[in-house]
Amino acid sequence: MARFRATVLARGRELYRDLPWRGTRDPYAVWVSEVMLQQTQVSRVDGRWQRWLARFPTPEALAQAPTADVLAEWQGMGYNRRALSLARAARAVVEAGAFPREEEDLLALPGVGPATAAGVRAFAFDLPGVYLETNVRAVFLHELFPGEAGVADKDLVPLVRATCPPDSSDLEDDPRTWYYALLDYGAHLKRTLPNPSRRSRAHVRQSRFEGSHRQKRAEVVRILLAHPEGVRAEQVSDELARMEEAAGREGVATADVRALLRELAGEGFCHESGGNWRP
């Protein structure tokens, strides 16, 4: 493992990316970057992360923001549910009085999984943990499982845990530095080789978005945001039909749109009042 760690640290120094969110130790700002970077390209997050923090600079600001404002700021980042989870988690942080640093407390926040919790601990607090995301996974597969397919995360987790520095006593080899090195080396491998993470059992090809139920949900949310004063289901159906037909797909029946609206309302995206739907 010593040889593996030396290789990763050397490649990390060589390939280091000076990304905006690496200049802060504010756990809230780090957390927002981690959520944005899930299944989203770094180039897409650079700019949107700064804009989000300008609009919602603290957990308190996000916790107090109307749902419509939160969803509007998130548009274009995919998975609107993540924006709602950010807002709900911000309210939990405000209620707790401080941003949590222990894994158990981070995992209790809405929408926070093991990788996000480990990322916040490493990058905001320089604490150890198992930060297993796609770039990190790529490095372990490339270096330690060459040519093997179907490698399970249960085989990687003990290695990730064992190789992470236990504390920040060595400023050149602390949890933050270690995971930055893994991320940057992994990103390089995925650009220059057949993606090693595809050999992971956890690798799942993303389902088609265009024409999917998820795509229609996203369009309905956009329609609602364009009508903050409220809009009737029939108008939502008409606007969605025009969007679908412009894309060469069949329109959506009003009954199906009503079902979509009820589904979204049940998740907190919108509400109905007097026959009008609002975000």
Rank of each mutant, 00 (worst) to 15 (best):
D184Y: 02
N195H: 13
H188T: 05
R176I: 08
S200A: 14
L189S: 07
A181F: 00
S168A: 15
L159T: 11
L182W: 01
R199G: 12
P165I: 04
A162I: 08
D173Y: 02
P158H: 08
D167L: 04
N195V: 00
A162Q: 14
R199F: 02
W178F: 09
S200G: 13
D170C: 05
R161M: 08
R201T: 10
T163H: 10
L156Q: 07
R199W: 02
R161E: 15
T163S: 14
Y180F: 13
D170P: 04
D155M: 11
E172G: 14
L156H: 08
Y180D: 12
D173N: 15
P175K: 12
R201E: 15
Y180E: 14
D167P: 10
T192Q: 13
A162H: 10
L189E: 05
P194R: 13
R191I: 09
C164P: 06
T163I: 01
P196E: 01
A162W: 06
L171V: 14
L183V: 02
D174F: 00
T192W: 07
P166Q: 11
V160P: 06
R198W: 08
K190C: 11
N195F: 00
S169F: 01
P175C: 14
R198H: 15
R199N: 15
L193H: 14
V160K: 02
R161G: 12
K154C: 12
D170S: 07
A152M: 10
K190V: 10
S169V: 08
P158C: 08
E172M: 05
D170L: 06
L182D: 07
A187T: 07
C164Q: 06
G186Q: 04
L182K: 09
S200C: 11
H188C: 09
L159D: 10
L156I: 09
D174R: 05
A187E: 09
R191S: 14
C164E: 01
K190P: 03
R198F: 09
A187C: 04
H188Y: 14
K190L: 04
C164H: 03
S168V: 00
D155C: 10
A162T: 07
A181H: 01
Y179D: 03
V151F: 02
E172W: 03
D170V: 02
P196K: 01
D184N: 11
R161I: 03
P165A: 07
V151A: 04
T192R: 15
S200F: 01
T192D: 05
V157T: 12
P196M: 01
L156G: 08
L189H: 08
P175N: 12
L182M: 14
D153C: 03
V160S: 06
K190Y: 02
V160M: 03
V160A: 05
S200T: 08
D167F: 01
D174Q: 11
R199T: 04
P165F: 01
R161F: 04
R161C: 05
D170I: 02
P175D: 14
R161V: 02
P194E: 13
S169L: 10
P165D: 08
D155F: 03
Y185C: 08
E172D: 15
L182S: 09
S169E: 12
P158G: 11
V157H: 13
P166V: 10
V157C: 04
A162R: 14
E172F: 05
P165K: 06
S169N: 11
L193K: 13
R176S: 15
D173F: 06
H188D: 15
V160I: 14
L171M: 12
L156W: 05
S197E: 09
E172I: 01
L182N: 07
D155G: 12
S197I: 00
L171Y: 03
R198M: 12
